[in-house]
Amino acid sequence: MRKICVIGGSRYFGKLLVQRLQAADHRVTVINRGSTSPPAGVEHLVADRNDDAALTDALSSRTFDVVVDQVCYTPVQAAIATRVFGGRTRRYVMTSTIEVYDPATAALTAVPVSVPMPEETVDPATWPVSTDLPWHDGTYLEAHYAEGKRQAEAVFTQAAGFEFASVRSAHVLGGGVQEFTGRLAHYVERIAQGKEITVHAEALPTVFIHYEELADLLLWATTATGFTGPVNACSDGLLGVRDLSAVVAAQTGRQPVYRTVARGETASPFSFDRHYAMSNARAKCLGFSFSRTADWLPGAVAEALATSAVPTI
């Protein structure tokens, strides 16, 4: 049994992670602002993670074996966490994102388009940090989401007094109504209603992960020992926007209607005009086994259909 603190963990795969930690007989503490209570038997601390003093007061004398940070978006938040949890935990796991590899948001090490990006493409040990940018501004943060994640990883890597690992998640699907981004629902509803899907002329493939598999990987990263640094989390198999649409079409009985966007025009989610795939080789070498996207995607589409208002065949 380990003492594990989860910051956030109130929805989607974070909520599932808390349930699985509890089911594995770990002593779980959840920290959030109080809007959502954790399951019975899970300790609940109410605090603003952006406030050093409030977070310190809420923790009191508590210490943990591992902290799992589901809601760290900026280097400022990471710096607060390193101060507050330094000396309180031996291991810290941060949920990160495939967006750190977006070449549209940073100058990255050149990787051939045919090669999924490995973790060293974005090295948090050397990534520059600027805590004086307006990270507190919601509009700025939304526009700089990828850079906020990169710099948060960098703060933990360069300054933390504990083991640090980041889980860079692929695009997450599954869960029906729980899938709060609405991106899969976008395809289900538009294809079922005969509405157009906007795509790039030469859309490049990307990678995905089922929300249950991501919870499994986070559980593994939380309880594993002997590895630090970033690890990519994606199911096996590249998938393009037309491949995804074909799976939806098979269950709606309607063929997708595509429109190619002009240069600079926004396309439907998961249509990318730039290299947007990552490698899961490191996680495999460390002992985690991934499923294939093609195996679970039809079920995720079925869940999205079941929770939508569109007719099915």
Rank of each mutant, 00 (worst) to 15 (best):
E142W: 09
E142T: 14
E142S: 15
E142P: 00
A143G: 12
A143Y: 08
H144S: 12
H144K: 11
Y145V: 12
A146Y: 05
A146D: 12
A146N: 11
E147S: 12
E147T: 15
G148C: 09
K149N: 11
K149G: 12
K149L: 07
R150F: 08
R150P: 12
R150L: 04
Q151F: 08
Q151C: 08
A152H: 09
A152K: 07
A152D: 06
A154Y: 03
A154S: 15
A154L: 02
A154G: 05
V155S: 08
V155W: 03
F156W: 06
F156A: 09
T157Y: 00
T157A: 14
T157R: 14
T157L: 00
T157Q: 13
Q158C: 07
Q158W: 00
Q158M: 02
Q158G: 09
Q158N: 08
A159E: 15
A159P: 00
A160M: 02
A160L: 00
A160K: 03
A160F: 01
A160T: 02
A160V: 00
G161P: 07
G161F: 00
G161Q: 05
G161R: 08
G161D: 08
G161N: 08
F162Q: 03
F162G: 04
F162M: 06
F162N: 03
E163K: 01
E163S: 13
F164R: 04
F164Q: 03
F164L: 01
A165N: 01
S166A: 15
S166C: 07
S166V: 02
V167R: 07
V167K: 06
V167E: 01
V167D: 02
V167I: 14
V167T: 14
R168C: 03
R168S: 03
R168I: 02
S169R: 02
A170H: 11
A170Q: 06
A170W: 10
H171V: 11
H171W: 13
H171A: 15
V172C: 06
V172Q: 07
V172N: 06
V172L: 12
V172S: 09
L173C: 14
G174I: 05
G174S: 07
G174E: 04
G175V: 12
G175I: 10
G175W: 05
G176K: 07
G176C: 05
G176E: 05
G176I: 04
G176P: 09
G176W: 04
V177M: 03
V177F: 01
Q178Y: 09
Q178P: 01
E179G: 13
E179V: 01
E179P: 10
F180C: 09
F180M: 10
T181P: 05
T181Q: 13
T181R: 13
T181V: 04
G182Y: 04
G182L: 02
G182Q: 03
G182W: 00
G182E: 02
G182T: 09
G182V: 04
R183W: 01
R183P: 11
L184M: 15
A185E: 11
H186C: 04
